[in-house]
């Protein structure tokens, strides 16, 4: 168990709790808090030395952020 693994687990736990109960309860705060467990998962993948998984996860994370932003805009716009 390297330091990356422990750090990633701490980040996943803290970020999941913060994303489930956001303090000002808006969609944007929840979306920003959702980025914290994404980086924690990236650290856990790093501790297993999976280069292809890291590349794919980085791309998909940015893409899903874009889709969430479009959904939030559509929901708050109307």
């Amino acid at each position: 168990m390297g330091p990356e693994f422990v750090l990633g687990l701490v980040l996943i736990l803290v970020g999941t709790v913060a994303s489930a109960f956001p303090r000002p309860k808006t969609y944007l705060v929840q979306l920003i808090n959702l980025e914290i467990p994404a980086w924690g998962l990236l650290l856990v993948m790093l501790s297993y030395n999976e280069a292809l998984a890291l590349l794919t996860f980085g791309g998909v994370s940015a893409l899903s952020t874009f889709i969430y932003v479009r959904v939030i805009q559509k929901r708050e716009g109307t």
Partner: peptide
């Protein structure tokens, strides 16, 4: 870990994600 290609890709993807959130803000 020596994953330089992953580092370059992640360093270019992270601001992209921030800019997407800034669009909504």
């Amino acid at each position: 870990r020596g994953l330089l290609d992953v580092l370059a890709a992640t360093a270019l993807i992270a601001p992209l994600s921030t800019i997407f959130i800034l669009m909504a803000i």
